[in-house]
């Protein structure tokens, strides 16, 4: 049988002392760390006080029964990710079905079979570990909401058309900076820079989905739908430029490199989906709109502006944004000249 890799923090909830002792001793022998609760209210109190990896929950309890604890946990965003295994006697099958339908992870019949107990506890802990790891990975690149949405919907590999806003940003003249500075200083610079940019993007509901060298691509309005994705992207861009001003002042005080960035933003229809293999995949957007955002970002240098956007983006901004038209520009790979706009 598969042995556990690392012990879990388990909460055993049962009003019956013999059952509590039995479950606790059995699982302690396997190396898990056990706490017990005698009723539903006590269980919730313990669950809110510290993190648990798994709950073994009796259905039949006085005052607050197993259903009520289960429902309370599932409604609580802080608790709903903790897997719950219901424990019940064989003649409560209907209750068990109800709990699984509500969202319980699994169930165990009493009297507990030790082999099944070990197998189900280990399987649940393993699943939770995988989910935790996935979530951690997503959170590095996206907001908590996006991470939760991705966890919930899973990864449908098929792409779909979406309406969204794409942003490209990179550091001006980065190549010459890399040639004239110490490698450790370059990496430190990049890390500080990305930390600031991520902060601004994530705060405005965006998801950073690619980083290459000093460049990044972010999407707004996907994977989570968001009606104001144009404004959100522009606000993020403004904040990125502002944060960089502060960053440059600090850099100047320390006698270190100052940097400038260019940001291109375009909105419209695009194809969104996961690309890659099952071992390594990324959420990405593809299409003319995405190409245009990349071209706009490149064009910031020539235009002498920090932020450039297309007409679709401009049209969906409210009056509080001051936008100037820079006229039509014929971009490489495009048949028609494109109207471009800059902020301020």
């Amino acid at each position: 049988m598969k042995s556990i890799r690392e012990p879990g923090q388990l909460l055993i909830v049962d009003d019956n002392r013999v059952n509590r002792i039995l479950l606790a001793r059995g699982l302690e022998q396997q190396g898990h760390i056990i706490e017990t609760a005698e009723n539903g209210a006590q269980a919730l109190e313990k669950l809110r006080a510290k993190p648990f990896d798994l709950v073994l929950l009796d259905i039949e309890m006085p005052e607050m029964n197993g259903y009520q604890v289960l429902e309370t946990c599932l409604k609580d965003s802080e608790l709903r990710d903790i897997p719950i295994i219901m424990t019940s006697s064989l003649d409560e099958l209907n209750s068990v079905v109800k709990c699984i339908e509500l969202g319980a992870e699994d169930y165990l019949n009493k009297p507990i079979n030790p082999i099944l107990l070990q197998a189900r506890v280990n399987a649940s802990l393993e699943k939770k570990r995988l989910r935790d790891e996935q979530r951690k990975l997503f959170r590095t690149f996206a907001t908590k909401e996006v991470a939760d949405e991705l966890m919930k919907s899973g990864f449908s590999l098929g792409g779909k058309y979406v309406e969204a806003t794409v942003m490209f940003a990179d550091i001006r003249s980065f190549t010459s900076i890399t040639e004239t500075h110490d490698p450790s200083e370059i990496i430190e610079l990049l890390n500080s820079y990305f930390a600031l940019m991520f902060e601004a993007i994530v705060r405005h509901g965006g998801t950073v989905n690619q980083m290459v060298g000093d460049g990044l691509m972010a999407v707004f309005g996907v994977p989570l739908q968001n009606e104001n994705h144009c404004e959100k992207a522009v606000c993020a861009a403004i904040e990125m430029v502002d944060l960089l001003k502060g960053f440059n002042i600090r850099q100047s005080d320390l006698g270190k490199i100052q940097i400038r960035i260019g940001i291109g933003i375009a909105s419209g229809k695009m194809i969104a989906g996961y690309t890659g293999t099952e071992h390594r995949a990324t959420y990405t957007c593809i299409g003319d709109t995405v190409n245009l955002a990349a071209r706009l970002e490149t064009h910031t240098k020539q235009a002498g502006k920090s932020i450039l956007m297309d007409r679709n983006t401009r049209d969906r901004l409210n009056e509080s944004f001051t936008v100037e038209s820079l006229g039509p520009v014929l971009f490489k790979g495009k048949l028609q000249p494109i109207q471009i706009f800059s902020l301020r």
């Binding site: 019956n16 002392r17 013999v18 002792i21 039995l22 001793r25 059995g26 009297p111 079979n113 030790p114």
Partner: peptide, 25 residues
């Protein structure tokens, strides 16, 4: 057979604790 399974699950050293809890409760 059921009792032996119980002993195995709780660990022989805990069987007394279990019996005492039951006889108490």
């Amino acid at each position: 057979a059921a009792f032996e399974e119980l002993k195995q699950m709780s660990g022989a050293s805990f069987i007394n604790e279990l019996i005492d809890a039951f006889l108490d409760d």
